[in-house]
Design a protein around this nucleic acid. Structure first.
Lengths: 220, 220
DNA sequence: CAGGTTCTGTATCAGTTGCTACGAAATGGG
DNA sequence: CCCATTTCGTAGCAACTGATACAGAACCTG
């Protein structure tokens, strides 16, 4: 499943005159800001600096362009989350670190607010319901990764026996998704971090011994 | 600020041949399900059972119809929340009851999933940014009402001195907003209620003495 | 009844939507 | 060089968007 220009082979015919990756980046930013239905081909071609035929030749159609932009978006987000989870010394630290990174990510001053995977197909007509379902599928996949980590913690004794792992993972995903709405409403990074701290008070087994270090300033 | 047919005065000319309130209800349901941008005039006229000129004569234009549908939506939701808050014996009970009612409201089998005030203008182009801002304003108003109740609890000693009321209210609003995404993704009422229980563990001062009664089954 | 008023359906308006036909331009292979 | 191949910009497609002009129909007042 590779894209038409992934190969380094010499291609016959007139070479492409624009940077496909850069154009995809612009498309991603537009879909992120305005959603799938709210972004027109005219918007896209203007931002990408190409004409409609070039867009269709390079990306197929609007829907495939959206999915590719979504892949581009999630590529960064998911690998970052995986790395944070891998480095965390405990499940609690992993959840805290991921939520803090989320607070940072959702309020970057130079990027659209909120999570593209949450906002970009929230309300589209029924003719695009399969897009909404695709985003739902991806959110469920994220939930599953969190469940896996929490189940590991349960097996290692970090979490009390009988802890409802699915409910706990769902709770933290719910908080993270709510933070997207807050970010869209103008919440600052610090406000989101305060919500993260509140959410961590719900960690099973109490928080008597917990002294979470302050989050490092965002460096990018 | 009244609508053209609020009066009970006898009106001259041909009487309206459709039920304005019922038509508004259908419009609300469509905007709720598909959002502002995702709902066309054709969709609306079909669902409302009227022709475009009747729609424009009765409701102004699409934007004013949307705002009126939003008022219709929030009328029920906000009065219900206010009543629940008024009846609750404590701030904690109020937050719990409102969140449980929210879990119920977001997963009604016969109504669209999620909160219309969150989803209906989440991603529209910049030409409708004032609609998104209007919804943001209403969400901030809801937050303010929650802050007021929590400040009252602080004054009454229910909450520890030094409690960050704004942060606490924002946390619970964030959870409620995240529940909208979960509901859209198919979460059941019980799953949302489990998230509510998790969120209540974050209530300041610990939960050692708290034994929240089970929520009553929804009766409509 | 006549006159004024308001609503109704048909039939559209100009503008935008996603998308593409077409021929010119730019490359590599022979 | 000539040709096949690929991309380019222009220009435009049918369908849909939000919103209306128009004429006829239905009501009240007189």
């Amino acid at each position: 499943m590779t894209h038409p220009d992934d190969s380094c082979l010499k291609r016959r015919g007139r070479p492409r005159s624009f940077d496909r990756a850069a154009a995809l980046e612009q498309a991603m930013l537009l879909f992120w800001r305005q959603g799938y239905a709210g972004t027109s081909i005219a918007d896209l071609t203007l931002a990408m600096g190409i004409s409609p035929p070039s867009l269709y030749a390079a990306f197929g159609d609007k829907e495939r362009l959206f999915l590719e932009a979504l892949d581009r978006y999630q590529g960064d987000v998911l690998s970052s989350a995986a790395q944070i989870m891998a480095q965390a010394p405990s499940a609690r630290a992993a959840v805290l670190a991921v939520l803090r990174a989320t607070a940072d990510r959702l309020t970057r001053p130079d990027l659209p607010r909120g999570c593209m995977a949450v906002t970009s197909a929230m309300n589209c007509g029924e003719e695009f319901s399969h897009l909404a379902e695709e985003l739902t599928r991806r959110r469920k996949a994220s939930l599953q990764r969190l469940c896996d980590r929490l189940n590991q913690a349960l097996a290692e004794g970090e979490l009390p026996d009988g802890t409802d792992i699915s409910a706990l993972a769902t709770f933290y995903q719910t908080v993270a998704q709510g933070m997207t709405i807050q970010a869209r409403d103008g919440a600052s990074r610090d406000e989101l971090l305060a919500t993260v701290d509140a959410a961590m008070r719900a960690w099973p087994g109490g928080n008597e011994a917990q002294h979470d270090p302050q989050p490092a300033d965002a460096i990018g």
